[in-house]
């Protein structure tokens, strides 16, 4: 089944949880399988939380723009914040020995690992992620 969800939420983690729950419940009904559900949940949560915390710096006046587009067996998710953007290539590697025990900074790595495709716009305030359904 094809469906599309577009939502603009305030920079509020609980709002993000509700939206993520809705997406996961929908995919669960469409038999996406546990591993794919986990991957989508992880990547979407990290993208939205990064937008709230780092992009919008928890400014409740700033919004997070989310689009989830499910087309047959392909799920495309876009998350945009209203911040200045960042360069993902310049982030410290959380798997370096010096960083591995630090209790933060894994979000971008996890999004990359759990998604089939990931890209950022030139400003660095929008991430686009793709996950394909197996089988």
């Amino acid at each position: 089944m094809n469906w599309c969800l577009q939502k603009v939420i305030p920079s509020e983690p609980l709002e993000a949880c509700e939206l993520i729950r809705n997406v996961i419940e929908r995919l669960e009904k469409e038999n996406w399988g546990d591993d794919a559900l986990f991957a989508v949940h992880m990547a979407l949560e990290e993208a939205v939380m990064n937008a709230i915390k780092h992009g919008n710096r928890r400014d409740v006046a700033k919004k997070v723009h989310i689009e989830v587009d499910c087309n047959c067996n392909k799920l495309e998710m876009t998350v945009r914040d209203e911040g200045a953007g960042f360069s993902p290539d310049q982030l410290p590697d959380p798997t370096d020995d010096a960083n591995v025990e630090i209790a933060s900074g894994r979000g971008v790595l996890l999004m990359k690992e759990f998604m089939d495709e990931i890209s950022y716009n030139a400003t660095g305030n929008e991430v686009r992620m793709v996950k394909r359904k197996l089988g």
Binding site: D34, D35, F38, A39, M42, P94, T95, V100, R106, L109, L110, E113, F114
Partner: peptide, 14 residues
């Protein structure tokens, strides 16, 4: 752990 949680610890080298 299920496979996905195991992957989470593997990807991050935790």
């Amino acid at each position: 752990m299920n496979n996905a949680v195991r992957d989470l610890f593997g990807f991050t080298q935790l």
